[in-house]
Simulated assay, not measured.
Amino acid sequence: MSGGKWTEGRVSGEKAAGKDWAEGQDVFLREYYVGVDLGGTKMLAALISGDGSIIAKEELPTLAQQGEAAVLDRLGSLIEGLLAAVPGGRSVLRGIGVATAGTLDTANGVVTFAANLGWRDVAVAAVLSDRFACAVRLENDATAAAVGEWLAGAGEGAPDCIFVTISTGIGGGIISGGRVIAGTNHNAGELGHISIDGNGPLCPCGNVGCLELYASGTAIGRRGAEQVRRGGAGALARLAGGDPNRVDARLVAAAAAEGDAEASGILREAGRSLGIGLVSILHLLNPQVVILGGGASHIGEPLLGPMREIIEERCLPSIRKPVRFVTSALGSAAGAVGAALLMSQSR
């Protein structure tokens, strides 16, 4: 299954019933997996068939403020809605993979701490397993996204690739020698907490000068807000209506697109910081492909151009030259697809 080409598209009623399919394909339609990407803002779930097709995907707001029981109930309802797309519903569900951020006890399926959800010691796997009577696997969200892109997206066919997500924070997943590098407790790939400045500010993780303090979407928005607060008079201040609380990375990018020199400078510095962090990662892991995902990656050249400049200047040529830098092919579905893949392969 892992070598198959994954496709997307809602299956019609006739196809889902097995009609007009080659006889040998019919067996795949009796096995399905659900992958979930559970975030602080939204939850996305994808239903995937045994032949590797994404049958359906849907998302809902997480509404974490309502508490863990309400969130898990909404997630259960989301999964049930997806299962309604195929004959047999729950009876053909073979497993659920859940990708989420935070500190995880993957062996027991427990989110031990997730700041974005406000959770401590939440037994996600047990709750979903009881509701759907199937196996449930919990995985780090960035690792799951890396697997999704590796097997079904921009990194397909590359035994050595790194997925870097640039959004609220910076995270990542590592594939080396055709194997997922998960770490002792499945928390490997905390690329955002590589220190790029030994004298930098204290990060909430306890380290100083962490990459995500300089190059994440949050960092870009924070620097933009500081600029407006200081009384900047360019496009950024105008787009924000003079209110620094309205500034985020998207607004900084919009101001830069209008020619705002200060906004462009913020993106350039963030891109250079990202490049500095990636040089260390490239030297350590020597990948074939670096996949860039997350909302801030859509800023494009104003951020990624300076990143490439630093890599060109500072990375060893023998390591730099073979690397391809690509953007995510699966987008927001990468984590859900990867979680489903990991679940299917663990059976």
Rank of each mutant, 00 (worst) to 15 (best):
A115P: 08
A101W: 00
V122D: 09
L128V: 13
A133K: 12
A126C: 01
V127E: 05
D121Y: 00
G97Y: 06
D141K: 06
G97C: 04
D130N: 14
T143P: 00
T143V: 13
G109E: 07
F113S: 14
A145T: 07
A145R: 06
W119N: 09
A135Y: 00
G118T: 11
D105I: 05
L104M: 07
A126R: 15
R90E: 15
A144D: 10
L138C: 13
A126Q: 14
R94A: 11
R120W: 03
D141P: 06
V122S: 03
R137Q: 13
A142L: 11
V127P: 00
P87W: 04
T103Y: 10
A145Y: 05
A114S: 15
L138A: 13
V111I: 15
L83K: 11
G88H: 11
A84V: 12
N140G: 05
A135R: 14
A135L: 01
D141Y: 10
V111P: 01
A107H: 10
A85D: 12
V86C: 05
A133E: 13
V86Y: 03
R131H: 04
F113N: 14
V147Q: 04
V92A: 13
A101Q: 01
N108I: 03
T103A: 10
A142K: 11
L128C: 08
L128F: 08
C134V: 15
T143N: 15
C134E: 09
R137W: 01
G97S: 02
A84W: 01
V147C: 12
V122F: 02
N140D: 03
A126T: 10
S129L: 02
A84Q: 12
A145S: 08
V111G: 04
L83H: 11
V110K: 04
V86M: 12
L128E: 03
F132I: 03
A114I: 05
G89Q: 05
R131M: 02
T100L: 01
V147W: 13
G97R: 04
F113T: 12
L83D: 06
V111S: 02
E139D: 14
V98N: 02
A142S: 13
D130P: 00
A126W: 00
F132Q: 02
G109F: 02
N116H: 14
V98K: 02
V92H: 14
A145N: 04
D105Q: 04
D141I: 08
G118Q: 10
G88K: 08
A144W: 08
L104P: 09
V92M: 01
A99E: 08
L117M: 13
V122A: 05
A125C: 07
R120P: 05
A85P: 00
A126E: 15
L104Y: 12
V86P: 06
D130W: 00
F132K: 02
D121L: 00
D105C: 06
F113H: 15
A114F: 03
A84T: 08
R94C: 09
A123D: 15
C134I: 12
D130S: 14
D121G: 01
S129A: 15
R137I: 04
V127A: 11
A99I: 10
A123K: 13
R120A: 14
S129I: 07
I96F: 05
T143K: 13
G109W: 03
G89F: 08
D105E: 05
D130V: 00
R137V: 10
A85W: 03
L117K: 09
